[in-house]
Design a protein around this nucleic acid. Structure first.
Lengths: 187, 187
DNA sequence: GTCTATAGCTAGATAGAC
DNA sequence: GTCTATCTAGCTATAGAC
């Protein structure tokens, strides 16, 4: 295994801090301390804290879709893939100590102050919804005949609600409820 | 009309800033500038920025339930009260420029750094859910025989999802979808 | 009860040695 | 390409005059 490069270590440390304690609450000094580098090195690799934020979000998006691909690729039926989407988001919450969705979090924290990030978050959620719709369309070919747009929106909103509420409550109950509801939606 | 007292002006200005640009991004200096007072006056009324945060959240919770009471008290049937809950949250979002839920926002911003606030947010959402359950129980007495717990959770999660997604997308589409779905849940 | 002045600290970012 | 030293600006909070 190759040794982790400085740039990658900065990204890893910064990402973890941005997620766990928030972007505004994370200082450059804390990042360089935990990455064990000098401040000059950080600014050699990244032009600003904001650039580090963009790199973080782009990487998290890739991780999110790759992670779901790994969870669902072994499954054959679209119905099972949809159920495993609930399991996947539950697992992400469990393993992060219910720290929430990276994208909802940063959007809540930045509000309207950073349009580039706001648009990135909007597009990310749109991608998630499109992915769900593709699964529902696949499901209709295999087993069902549901209204794809309506069921997609329903599942999409339930999942976002479940993530937010599980973050607040620090438990996964909302995902279990969500799975039951979705089972009822896909006969 | 009585002149607004200094303390109330501080609360109003701070609340607006906390909501619109975030708690961490709002400085004491900005609050006193926009409230047009000296810093000594602020600390005469409030012991810390954190106390101001607590007052803000308590006040917003009161406003939330009072606002819904005003919207729903004139309605007779529980079913209509549930529909008007969707309208109410849609209206809150519209009138704030889709700035999101005060409580989800502060929870996302603070993470686990402030347990007192985290617990307040948790209890607030629990109160909302209990309110929904009371409406569903009332509905069952009048018109229906749905599974109260399951339908409550379903409506609750859909609404939270709709608030989050409407905040990200800066439009009310998610509420219109949510209303349609809820209409299907309450025959 | 409102004011000014300021303490003590941390923020993000830059300059320049090596 | 990593380092130290440092800049300017901002932060929360306090002291003490009036």
């Amino acid at each position: 295994m190759e040794k982790e490069k400085v740039k990658d270590r900065i990204i890893r440390v910064a990402s973890d801090l941005f997620y766990k304690q928030g972007f505004n609450s994370t200082g450059i000094n804390q990042i360089i301390a935990e990455a064990d580098i000098a401040i000059g090195s950080l600014y050699n690799h990244f032009s600003s804290k904001n650039e580090l934020l963009k790199v973080y979000l782009i990487k998290e998006e890739l991780k999110w879709f790759d992670g779901f691909e790994k969870h669902s690729s072994k499954l054959i039926k679209a119905k099972d893939k949809i159920f495993t989407l609930v399991d996947y988001r539950k697992e992400l919450q469990n393993s992060s100590g219910f720290s929430g969705c990276h994208f909802i979090k940063i959007n809540a924290e930045l509000g309207d102050s950073n349009p580039v990030i706001s648009e990135f978050v909007m597009k990310h959620k749109e991608k998630q919804k499109i992915m769900i719709k593709e699964l529902i369309t696949e499901y209709n070919k295999e087993d069902g005949s549901v209204n794809a747009d309506a069921i997609t929106e329903n599942i999409f909103l339930l999942l976002e609600g479940a993530v937010v509420i599980s973050t607040i409550n620090k438990n996964a109950d909302a995902f279990d409820q969500t799975k039951k509801i979705i089972k009822g939606l896909l006969p």
